[in-house]
Design a binder for these strands. Structure first.
Lengths: 187, 187
DNA sequence: ACCTGAACACCGTTCAAGT
DNA sequence: ACCTGAACACCGTTCAAGT
C-alpha cells in the first residue's frame, strides 16, 4: 500500500486542485477518499506545500507527455498548432476542470515558492512546444516565434478560464475559432 | 459609523478577493483591519455569499464607470480599443492584483449562485463595451463584432493571469503587443 | 441601530503512540 | 515502514446578549 497510497494521494489532490485550487486541497477529504486518516498524509508528504509541488510537477510532466504524443501523431506543424487547444478542452470536458496551472496562477499570492516553480515550468513546457511547432512551420523569426508562442498559450488558457465560468464548451470552441480567424493562431 | 462600516467592509473584502480570491475573504482579518469584531460583519451582510456578491457587483459597476470614462475621453474607437487593456494593467500595477472576475471564474465550482451572477455581469459589461467600440469603428458584421469582442476580453484577461504568475508587467505589455501584431485586437 | 463574546464544526499541522 | 488519536490555532457561522 505504500507506493499506492502515495499515488492515490497525488491523484486525489490533483483532481481537487483542478476543481478548487491549491487552497481547496483538503487533507481530510483526500484521506477519506482513499481510506486513510488525514495525519497519514504527512508520512508521504512533509507539508501541504510539498504535496502541492508534487501535484504540480506531475501535472506538467503528464502534459509534456501528452504534447509529445500530439507531436508524434502530427508531423505537420500546422496540424499540431490546430491540435494544441484540445488539451485544454479535455479538462473542461472532464467535469469542467481548469488547467491546474491557471488556477495556481490566480492563487499566486498564497503559493509557497516550491509550488510556484512548478507552475512556471508548466507554462515553459507549453511555450517551448508551441515555439517548436512554429519553427517547424517555418513561421517568423526566432524572436517572433517565442513571442507568438507565449501569446497563443496565454490566450488559450484564458479561453478555458472564461468558458469554465459559463460551463460552456461551445464558448471555448468559439473563442478558439475566433483566435484562428483573427490570425493569432496561424492556420 | 453605520454606512462607513459597510463601505469599509466592502473595500477590504474587495482588496482581499483580488489577492486571494473568494475563498480568501477572511472575516476575522477584515474585522481586524477596520476595527470591529468578525461577528459584526453579519450585521451588514447576511453571509459570506452576500458579501461576495456585493463585492463583485460593486466591482463590475466601478469597471463600467471606468470604461465609460475611457469612451468619453477617446472619441476615436481605435484609440478606445488600444486603451482597453490599461484597466487590466492597472490591477497588476496595484500590488499585482488580479481581476476579481478572473479569480472568481477559477473558483467557479465553489461560488454561490448569487456571486456567479455578478461574475457573469462583469464579462458582459466588458464585451458590450468592446462590441460598441468595434461597431463605432465600422469593423465587421454584428455577429463578427460580438465574437471578436469576446475573444479580446478573454485574451486580455488571460494575459493578466499569466503575467501575474511571473510578477512581470513587461510580459503583460508584450502579450498585448503580440495580440495587436497578430491582428486579434484591431489597430 | 450597531456591536460583541462565546460557542459550533471545520481546517492544516504536530507529535507521541501504536503495529 | 506505515498509520493513528488527540491536540493546537485557525476558519465561517450562529445566537443570545449587550449598549
Amino acid at each position: 500500500m505504500s507506493e499506492n497510497a502515495r499515488e492515490a494521494i497525488l491523484t486525489a489532490a490533483r483532481s481537487a486542485a483542478q476543481l478548487h485550487g491549491y487552497s481547496g486541497i483538503n487533507f481530510r477529504s483526500i484521506a477519506d477518499e482513499i481510506g486513510i486518516k488525514n495525519a497519514s498524509i504527512y508520512y508521504h508528504f512533509s507539508s501541504k506545500a510539498a504535496l502541492g509541488a508534487a501535484v504540480a510537477r506531475r501535472y506538467w510532466q503528464d502534459t509534456s507527455t501528452l504534447l509529445a504524443e500530439i507531436r508524434a501523431h502530427n508531423p505537420d506543424p500546422w496540424q499540431r498548432l490546430r491540435a494544441f487547444p484540445s488539451i485544454f478542452r479535455k479538462s473542461l470536458e472532464n467535469a469542467n476542470r481548469l488547467c491546474l496551472s491557471s488556477f495556481m496562477a490566480a492563487e499566486y499570492e498564497d503559493l509557497p515558492e516550491e509550488v510556484l516553480a512548478e507552475v512556471r515550468a508548466f507554462a515553459d513546457v507549453n511555450v517551448a512546444w508551441l515555439t517548436e511547432a512554429l519553427a517547424d512551420a517555418g513561421w517568423g523569426s526566432a524572436q517572433d516565434r517565442d513571442r507568438r508562442a507565449r501569446a497563443i498559450y496565454t490566450a488559450v488558457a484564458g479561453a478555458q478560464l472564461i468558458a469554465r465560468s459559463r460551463t460552456d464548451l461551445h464558448l471555448f470552441d468559439d473563442l478558439i475559432s475566433s483566435y484562428q480567424e483573427a490570425g493569432l493562431i496561424p492556420a
